[in-house]
Design a protein around this nucleic acid. Structure first.
Lengths: 224, 224
DNA sequence: GGTGCTAATATTGGTACCAATTTGTGTGCC
DNA sequence: GGCACACAAATTGGTACCAATATTAGCACC
């Protein structure tokens, strides 16, 4: 029935070949979930997705199956798929898992930053700082993600890195955008600088401390 | 063509309903991969799977997509699916990731074992020991898995536990059954006892040390 | 005798159609 | 006026068919 309300954000559709198409659809749906365009609990009707992303029915089904496997959407037999809804407990558990993984990545990455990587990270940190001064909230978010993605590229274990990316994507950023107070953002800027400093000094404990602390700020105080 | 060679192990097929069917097919394929019946690199022809697991074509496709998402099989467009092949480097990285996760789970579980849990673990450890004395290699493997699954149930973070299970399933046990020397098995029995002792004493560091050490035995010495 | 090419076959990938189940609506009844 | 029941519309789920692509066998040619 109300197909327009279920999918507020529009997306352009392009032509691809093979199972790559359904994967790209899954990625776009995941992005929309992460961005909050598809809020937690929202029902994902196949017809809407089919029209919105400009793809066939089979592609939608395969994309939804992929997202179910990634735990981003939930499937109810004969009812359909809806965006995964995380209760506070589950959110805290995911946060704890993220902290474990990010800390481990920091332990492996602390001495892996060469001059070029440091320069790249500084540029991205500066971009985040600039977005904070005069940029939309979306730009701030994008810059923040870019910085952390670049930081993750230092991790010498690609399996760990992939798992961290998956875990990050399981937390809708719309939930994060509830708290971003001025203080949290200022703290983030300082944290980014501290991370770069720790990387330059090859200080493992410092990097680990900053990374974990950086995460705890975003979540509830007592849930770490 | 040679459909019989590609799928050496037979499986019975039962009738189910809904997307549960393809999921159960995926689980059975995953088991066969983990058990080594479907060796790394083997091509998974849809016709063979369809016949072997007694399900429809669509179920096979969905199951394969699920296994691709779980990184157990690889997909080559217009060629088909084949069991993921892990080079030594990738295997070492997966082992490192497993060590990180198992250690974290140990840190969270060290004080979560009540009397009933300890009794259950002791029973499973005894079952493993009995299987080592007079039991097939398959029984030993099953008992070992049962013990570690029970240990994992102590982990208070189900997200972490689920991730550990997924990671364990990504390492075919056929690769493990190359080294199981007498010494390794004896060491495993001692490790299991040490884990239980550490749980009884609520000794976090001891549990962590034993768990990580228990893993390093299985892999190459220098790859931890 | 070996090699490159062509046709036949087998397998994968996509689409379209149809059945099964659920949801919303309208009506009759209490 | 509120509630239960039955009907209609919409959505999901499965199956079957067809096109596209890769593999293999056979054949001519060098």
């Amino acid at each position: 029935m109300e197909s327009d309300q279920a999918l507020p954000a529009g997306c352009a559709g392009d032509a691809m070949s093979g199972p790559t198409r359904s994967h790209s659809v899954a990625e776009r749906i995941a992005q929309d979930i992460q961005a909050g365009a598809l809020p937690p609990g929202a029902w994902l009707k196949q017809i809407d997705l089919e029209r919105r992303y400009g793809c066939s029915r089979g592609d939608v089904r395969r994309a939804l199956d992929e997202l179910v496997a990634k735990r981003l959407v939930q499937h109810v037999p004969n009812r359909g798929h809806h965006v995964f809804e995380l209760d506070p407990q589950r959110l805290a558990q995911l946060g704890q898992l993220r902290a474990i993984l990010e800390a481990a990545a920091a332990d492996l990455s602390y001495d892996k930053a060469d001059a070029a990587a440091l320069q790249r990270l500084e540029a991205l940190a500066a971009r985040f700082e600039a977005a904070v001064r005069d940029g939309t909230l979306l730009e701030q978010h994008a810059a923040n993600i870019a910085f952390h993605m670049a930081l993750l590229e230092l991790c010498p274990n690609p399996e760990l890195a992939a798992m961290i990316r998956e875990t990050r994507n399981r937390v809708p950023s719309a939930l994060l955008s509830q708290w971003p107070t001025r203080g949290w953002i200022e703290q983030s800027i300082r944290d980014h600088a501290d991370m770069i400093a720790a990387l330059r000094a090859c200080d493992r404990d410092a990097l680990r401390r900053v990374v974990v602390g950086h995460m705890r700020e975003g979540r509830r105080p007592g849930a770490g």
